[in-house]
Design a binder for these strands. Structure first.
Lengths: 294, 294
DNA sequence: CTGAAAGCGCTTACAG
DNA sequence: CTGAAAGCGCTTACAG
């Protein structure tokens, strides 16, 4: 019999099976954009953890569109996925999640309801050590380029940044931006217009840091001599570009693995252990900052 | 009745439905790595085209692992996806495809069997115009950093490069590399060791061009004054980095949309129209090349 | 120990 | 026109 199966190359229909078993050993990962390198690096970690435990990962791009998000959540529910890991910033998400019978792990946001767990890194400390590093380097006119305000990650980093400034008697300055390339470039120009005397910038992603670097070069400002830049995330690219970025490195591998583990454990034990999971960040010094000698 | 459906928020189980209908209005997109920006940009285009026609896209990361590839192909078959778009470089792929009942569109490779169609850009011309541009700029020791040899795209670009060199009486030089960051950096160093007198480099992706730029900077070579670089792909990042890359731009949007259209049409008409689809490339001039004045 | 039946959530062709 | 039955590809509990 086993031999017959091997010889004919018979492969059972896993989805038909899942119809009865209520589990397809599938984890869905929904991101606002598959062009976001940081989220993709997390995806690699999710997939590694998933495969090591006999699960597959399906990646879905929601395009920040609540309709697509709902469509993918419904699709994953239909196929009896064992859980969903999601990053999203729309207000309908809480409701979507409440109506979804699958276990859900949210990244970059606090767990809003009792249906979910969340995995994040320590954004408050991230904002704080980034600001402190710029202060230590001798910067006095530091501007934070914030990400979208719906994310609690953005809010927490802002608080850390403000506290660091206040502790050192420096005025906190900031403006907001979106994550897309176009918006990053636009916001970078706006930042230099509104704060021409800036000498240090905290970006909210490494990509934004790259945009800032480009615009600073265009305007003849030298990095790090005239203006220093600190990125955020610590994606692989931050070391590949020239100059290498000083950045707040999130524990990308751990974030992804933990999110996957929470789903996988839930399949076995039938309840998610920890609600809020906060992982530590670290500062990675690159070539976009240096201590000023006076 | 309709009202009752709306009020209770009833959502039909699409997968159970597909069990009977043999179609789930789903397109699978399998890539060797979700860290590959070029393939992700194609994925955005596939998804846009898919959604406009009432299809969803599922992205799967094969990790260049034939086992994972087979697992995802089997999964997509199980869920009655309407087709698969795949980029892959392993030798087992042809067999996998032959055993898969779904329509398959292959990117970056010729259609090997009559079960498939392929969508590629004009790699021969791409290799040729890149080399010609470097020759026009005054380079005489041009090295091609090739990608993995299993891809016909790599082979075609190589032929274009060699023809351009021969036509101008310049010796074609090359070495091979892989697409990962680590390998790109390693190969960049190797290139400079083996060809210290190089004055122009053709990279096989924009990421490799960035690695080359980094290594050249480390070794005190100026770009474009001492060595010029031409990238390949024309990803959004190639304009965001400093210096901006001169690169052979592939028609990313068109590649993705066409691949999706081939699947979608096949659902309607029940046969794939064109087998081999070759789309035109164009040279995008950036700051990593310039005409030498003697 | 083997084999036919019922059920997972749907759709469609068919009987009433 | 409505409603029950059969079937999509599986699994499991149950009858023989």
């Amino acid at each position: 019999m086993q031999e017959a199966i091997r010889e004919t190359g018979f492969k059972p229909n896993e989805i038909a099976r899942s119809l009865y078993k209520k589990s397809s050993r599938l984890i869905g990962y929904i991101v606002p954009s598959i062009l976001n390198v940081f989220l993709n690096e997390i995806g690699r970690a999710i997939e590694d953890e998933a495969f090591q435990n006999g699960f597959k990962m399906i990646l879905c791009n929601s395009d920040e569109d609540p309709g697509k998000e709902a469509a993918y959540i419904n699709m994953l529910t239909s196929m009896n996925a064992d859980g969903i890991i999601i990053t999203a910033n729309n207000e309908h998400l809480d409701e979507e999640i409440r109506n979804c019978p699958l276990p859900i792990v949210v990244l970059d946001k606090n767990a809003g309801t009792h249906y979910t767990a969340s995995v994040q890194s320590d954004n408050y400390t991230g904002g704080k050590i980034a600001a402190e590093h710029l202060l230590d380097c001798g910067c006095r006119r530091i501007v934070l380029m914030r990400g979208p305000q719906q994310y609690t990650s953005t809010q927490q980093r802002f608080l850390g940044y403000v506290d660091a400034c206040n502790e050192r008697g420096v005025q906190p300055l900031f403006l907001s931006s979106q994550y897309s390339y176009e918006e990053s470039i636009r916001s970078s120009r706006e930042l230099l217009e509104r704060f021409p005397e800036v000498d240090g910038i905290l970006a909210s992603t490494d990509m934004m840091a790259m945009s800032l670097y480009k615009v600073l070069c265009e305007q003849g400002r030298r990095v790090p001599d005239d203006v220093m830049i600190v990125g955020y995330d610590g994606v692989a690219l931050s070391e590949l570009i020239t100059p290498t970025l000083t950045t707040v490195a999130q524990p990308i591998e751990e974030i992804g693995r933990l999110a996957a583990k929470l789903i996988i454990e839930q399949v076995a034990t039938n309840n998610i252990q920890q609600k809020e999971n906060i992982l530590p960040v670290s500062l990675k010094i690159g070539e976009t900052t240096k201590r000023k000698n006076k």
